[in-house]
Design a protein around this nucleic acid. Structure first.
Length: 427
RNA sequence: GGAGAAAUACCCAAGUCUGGUUGAAGGGACCGGUCUUGAAAACCGGGAGGUCGGAAACGGCGCGGGGGUUCGAAUCCCUCUUUCUCCGCCA
């Protein structure tokens, strides 16, 4: 969400940004919203003037009544009633304008960074850099679900009976490896100086609408029946919501948090739930990083953050690459975003395991998250990035450490979390 | 889940019964000074108080959120949320 004043004063820039994002259909909204804002400002002035008169007159009535001048007071009362009638009308008009302005502002996208490559959709995303050699072993790597099942580590059939498609039981060493990765991811980020958090896994609707669009909400969020509560799709939702309507002290910035949560997603639309595997499921677990910082430091943090994820996967011997999101694929709230993708030796291509984004002040404006500086308050920048989302991350480790004999080598970093085991699935 | 109490500015805290110069007493913190080798303590002095518009003057909103009554609401009514105490239930 942009600042309405910025839009009004930089119409051409905003329009250019829309073109870059291939959203030409929204071009007329820029002029429309600017006009509505001008009207609203005038209306506000009228309303303020009338309120001023009402406040003054009312206090005069008080004085008159004290002095026993009842008739004069009655006259003034009539005037205030008149003012109130006019006010009701004007206020209603203003409210309608405001609603419309907000509606439009919610769909005018954030100004993207100059460095974002221009492209229509995800097919035009740009590979930035590869880390580690994408090795294709001379033996065949089976499908990850088959590997897990062969080790008695996955039961999708039972999960289908208890919960339906898109759920899973992880069992034994595979389940342990899954938890080991999360514990390691947690400690990895704590070592980087981030504060570990466990947030609420359910949030109210006002927080939900603060962090995502209605379309996203319908496609992603599970609602609890008869309660104003939603299961979170990522801990980012709770973590950003934590600061709703807050003014943080400038000296507390940057706020660097790493949060764990299960994540629940309906995955309506998207590409659907994967029948056999663990790649796209209704429930997964994630170690996330969330940063609130001064606006001028956002880009520096953005680059630091995706590098943490790269380092994390490299420490598990997983080759990765970064893929920059092009203008057309960038969600409307984002300034710049890239995916970290892990190498799949089976498919011989990279697949998404994390996503790093800077949203500039977009979320902060929606949720009113400000910092108190020497020269007044300002909106903070918000960023988020995946450290590890698993079972997706688990797939990457399993495929890249699969041995010819059907066992899985445990990367050194995970061994302390696996009771020292160097391999699982040894016959 | 039941019963009661409460929510006032950065923090503590008056005011709410009895509606009217209440931006909202009083502290603390903060800033300046005296004293001190320095600090603390004590004492003296000081401005600002949240937020929005405005260059400013000034003005609007604002006493947990929303709504209502009234010429006028921190104060009365409704509703929601949160916190505390007690009971119940439970990892």
């Amino acid at each position: 969400m942009l600042d309405i004043k910025f839009v009004k004063e930089n119409k051409e820039l905003v329009k250019e940004n829309l073109k870059k994002k291939f959203q030409e259909e929204k071009l007329p909204l820029v002029d429309e919203v600017s006009e509505k804002y001008t009207k609203k400002t005038t209306l506000q002035q009228q309303i303020d003037d009338l309120r001023k008169e009402r406040n003054q007159t009312s206090s005069e009535i008080g004085t008159l009544l004290k002095n026993g001048k009842k008739e004069e007071a009655e006259q003034k009362k009539e005037r205030v009633v008149e003012i109130n009638n006019t006010l009701t009308k004007l206020e209603q008009e203003k409210e309608e304008l405001e609603t419309k302005i907000k509606e439009i502002m919610m769909i005018i996208p954030q100004m993207i960074d100059d460095s974002v490559p221009i492209g229509k959709d995800d097919s035009e995303n740009v590979e930035i850099e590869k880390f580690g050699e994408p090795i294709v072993p001379d033996y065949e790597i089976p499908y990850h679900a088959d590997i897990c099942e062969a080790l008695n580590g996955l039961d999708k059939e039972s999960a289908g009976r208890t919960s339906g498609n898109g759920f899973y039981y992880l069992m034994g060493d595979i389940a342990r490896l899954h938890s080991a990765m999360l514990s390691y991811a947690r400690d990895f980020m704590i070592d980087k100086g981030f504060t570990y958090c466990i947030p609420p896994f359910m949030i109210r609707s006002d927080v939900v609408t603060g962090v995502m669009s209605f379309a996203e909400m319908d496609a992603m969020m599970y609602k609890i029946e008869d309660e104003d509560l939603y299961l979170i799709g990522t801990s980012e939702h709770s973590m950003i919501g934590k600061f709703k309507d807050q003014i943080v002290k400038e000296e507390e910035l940057p706020i660097t948090l790493t949060s764990y949560s299960p994540c629940f997603r309906k995955e309506v639309g998207a590409h659907g739930i994967e029948e056999r595997g663990l790649y796209r499921v209704h429930q997964f677990e994630k170690q996330e990083m969330v940063v609130l910082c001064k606006p001028e430091e956002a880009m520096e943090w953005y680059h630091k953050m995706w590098k943490f994820t790269v380092d994390f996967f490299r420490s598990l011997d997983v080759p990765v690459r970064t893929l920059e999101c092009c203008s057309g694929d960038l969600a409307d709230l984002k300034v710049k975003s890239c995916d970290v993708e892990a190498w799949s030796p089976r498919q011989q291509k990279y697949f998404e395991v994390g996503s790093c984004s800077t949203l500039g002040d977009a979320q902060a404006r929606r949720l009113s998250i400000r910092a108190k500086g020497e020269n007044g308050n300002y909106l903070v920048a918000t960023l988020n990035n995946t450290v590890l989302a698993t079972p997706r991350g688990l797939i990457a480790v399993i495929e890249n450490n699969y041995e010819k004999d059907g066992s899985i080598k445990i990367p050194k970093a995970l061994r302390p979390y696996m009771g020292g085991k160097e391999k699982i699935g040894v016959k």
